Amino acid sequence: MVHAFGSPKRHPRSGVFFLRKRVPDRLRKAVGKREIKISLRTRDPDIARIRHLEQLLRIEQSFAQIDGVLLGPNGSPLAYIEIKSRTGVAMPAAPLVQLDQVAPPAPVTSAPVSLIGLFESYAAEAQLSPATVKRWAPLIARFAAHLGHDNARAVRRDDVIAWKDSLLKEVGCASVGL
């Protein structure tokens, strides 16, 4: 199966995964390389996939800053601005969109996201086995009950630590700080 974002590569000797990304021709002078290689510092393929996507996001954001791209609220490019690179060479850019023709971004709303609904969506997308869903769904519901709400957007690090501490108290263990 071919992935749209590529996939992490495994180093033949060490077995450590790494990212390999070609630099677009228009950005080579600004970046100073034809290719970017970054170690993902893991031998675990699942962790490597996550780190691969995170690094790709950082690279693409850096490319967008070099390009001078104005992004819309949904992440699509609204305008490409020709800017000069650090070397003083003008970077080629796509046709400039007049900024007064671009609608202002819509305000970001923080609609609540259900923890249980989020898990169910994840389970369907990841095609989790029914046994896995049966095992984890009650834990998600228990976490929501501990919080007193079902809004995933409102969960903070302190909430998770408090839940961990309450679980440790139930089994009689001492609290371990994160």
Rank of each mutant, 00 (worst) to 15 (best):
T42C: 02
E54C: 04
A64T: 07
A141N: 06
I38R: 05
R43E: 13
A174Q: 12
A162F: 10
H149E: 04
V108K: 05
V31R: 00
V176D: 11
A111K: 09
Q127S: 10
R34N: 10
D158G: 08
L40D: 07
G88A: 01
G32S: 01
D46W: 13
I66R: 00
T87E: 08
A4I: 15
S85Y: 12
A145P: 14
V23C: 00
R86F: 13
A137G: 10
K134R: 10
D46G: 04
E60P: 03
E35P: 08
D46I: 10
Q98V: 15
L178M: 14
K84I: 14
G6I: 06
Q65P: 14
Q65Y: 15
Q101C: 07
L19F: 09
H11L: 04
I161L: 09
A144N: 03
S175N: 15
D165G: 05
L57P: 10
I59P: 06
T132Y: 05
A30D: 03
R41E: 14
K84R: 10
L19R: 01
L56N: 06
S166V: 11
R10E: 11
V31G: 00
V113L: 06
S14K: 04
L57A: 06
L147W: 11
S7E: 13
L147M: 05
R86D: 12
V69A: 00
S129N: 06
Q61H: 10
A94R: 05
E60A: 01
S62A: 09
A162Q: 08
P8Y: 04
S14D: 07
T87H: 07
V176I: 15
I50E: 09
G88F: 06
A79Q: 05
R49T: 14
S114Y: 08
R28K: 02
P130Q: 03
V89R: 06
E54V: 07
I161P: 12
V108P: 14
T109V: 13
R26W: 15
D159V: 05
G148S: 04
K37W: 14
V97A: 03
L78E: 08
R135Y: 14
V108Q: 09
M91Y: 15
P104I: 02
K84Q: 12
P112Q: 01
I36A: 01
S166K: 05
R43W: 15
R10P: 11
F5Q: 08
R26L: 11
R41S: 08
P107I: 04
Q65E: 14
V113I: 13
L70N: 03
I36N: 01
A93V: 04
G117N: 01
W136V: 11
H52Q: 02
R142T: 12
A137C: 12
K84P: 14
D159G: 02
L53D: 12
D67E: 08
A126T: 07
A90K: 10
S175F: 12
I38H: 08
C173T: 11
G172W: 08
Q101L: 08
T132V: 05
S76C: 08
P12T: 03
A106E: 11
V23N: 00
P92C: 02
R43F: 13
V113E: 08
K29C: 13
P77Q: 01
M1Y: 15
P45A: 00
